[in-house]
Computed example of a mutant assay.
Amino acid sequence: MATFLGKNKYIDKSLEHLFKPTKKIGKLMWIDDVNELIAIAVKDGMKPNYIFKIQNYIGYSVSTNEKDIGGKSGLGRAIGGGILFGPTGAIVGAVTGKKGAESIINNLMIDIQLNYNGKTVSEKIPVILFRKVKLNSAEYKKIESEVSEIVIILDNLLSPTINQHTVPSTLKQELLDLKELLDLDIISENEFTQHKEKLLKN
């Protein structure tokens, strides 16, 4: 794990030992579907150095060359320009579709908003930071694809229909807490199985 996660003060030590990535998007985002955790790189070109629980995620926005070009809040509505991001062409369409648009991007940020005990915290993924990338370049096409994939995931996490067929949140939290006790070697595999079956029967 030490070779995967960056040594950084942003890492939440209580989540670090739980994180096991099941999906990776470039060098920008890593997802742990099992433990419902997401890791991001908040410094350009670095290993993942910030981990957060999906339950704390409340929204995002995307900005380029210091201009907000779109995003979503926890209410499921488009914000910052009302851009609807699709699988392809979304970011470049938002940039080049404007009159007098630049042919070069110097900065491209994904701003992720998190809620911790009623307080909103913002963490930025610096996709492009203080360097020139041409919109018609192969590098930008790769970046566009990765950002669009991230945006689709972030949109889906905010969708009210996404959790319709999942277990109730209280039960889910109890199962996650139980899994954490197992990972910390506080309970055995047999105890974990017994407690899990008991919770699922109730």
Score class of each variant (00 low, 15 high):
Lys27Asn: 11
Thr64Pro: 00
Asn163Ser: 09
Leu184Tyr: 08
Asn163Met: 07
Glu180Trp: 12
Ser148Tyr: 00
Met1Ala: 13
Val147Pro: 00
Lys196Thr: 00
Ile125Phe: 09
Lys24Trp: 14
Met29Asn: 05
Asp177Val: 10
Leu200Gln: 05
Glu189Asp: 02
Gly80Lys: 05
Leu158Trp: 04
Ala39Phe: 05
Met109Asn: 10
Lys20Leu: 10
Leu175Ile: 14
Pro168Glu: 07
Lys47Leu: 11
Ala2Arg: 15
Ser103His: 10
Thr166Asn: 02
Met29Ile: 13
Lys27Val: 04
Trp30Cys: 07
Ser122Gly: 03
Asn35Tyr: 11
Leu200Val: 12
Glu180Ser: 08
Lys172His: 10
Asn136Thr: 11
Pro87Ser: 13
Met1Phe: 01
Leu135Thr: 10
Pro168Lys: 03
Leu108Thr: 02
Gln194Val: 09
Thr170His: 12
Gln173Cys: 01
Leu5Lys: 06
Asn56Leu: 06
Glu149Asn: 09
Pro126Tyr: 06
Gly59Ser: 03
Lys20Tyr: 03
Leu158His: 04
Gly118Glu: 13
Gly45Trp: 15
Glu197Trp: 04
Glu36Ile: 01
Gly89Cys: 06
Thr88Met: 14
Ser169Asp: 15
Leu135Ile: 06
Asp32Tyr: 06
Leu114Asn: 11
Asn115His: 13
Asp32Glu: 11
Glu102Tyr: 00
Ser169Gly: 03
Lys196Pro: 03
Ser137Arg: 02
Ser103Gln: 07
Gly74Trp: 06
Leu37Cys: 06
Asp12Leu: 04
Leu15Ile: 07
Asp155Leu: 07
Leu84Glu: 06
Pro87Met: 08
Gly45Val: 10
Gln164Cys: 06
Gln194Asn: 02
Val133Thr: 04
Gln113Arg: 07
Phe192Ala: 01
Ile143Met: 01
Ile11Phe: 05
Gln164Thr: 14
Glu123Phe: 12
Lys99Glu: 11
Leu199Met: 14
Leu28Glu: 03
Val133His: 02
Ile91Phe: 07
Phe52His: 06
Leu37Asn: 04
Asp33Glu: 15
Glu16Met: 05
Asn107Ala: 14
Gly74Glu: 10
Ser188Val: 04
Glu191Thr: 02
His17Val: 15
Ser148His: 12
Leu182Met: 02
Ile128Val: 07
Glu146Cys: 08
Glu144Asp: 15
His165Ala: 04
Lys13Arg: 02
Phe85Ile: 13
Ile40His: 05
Ser137His: 00
Ala138Ser: 02
Asp185Thr: 05
Ile128Leu: 11
Gly81Phe: 04
Thr170Cys: 06
Asn35Thr: 13
Leu178Val: 13
Leu37Ile: 08
Gly71Val: 05
Ile25Tyr: 11
Gly93Arg: 05
Asp32Met: 08
Thr3Tyr: 10
Lys124Gly: 08
Leu157His: 02
Ala2Tyr: 06
His17Cys: 09
Thr22Gln: 08
Ile104Pro: 12
Gly86Cys: 08
Ile31Gln: 13
Ile162Gln: 09
Phe4Glu: 02
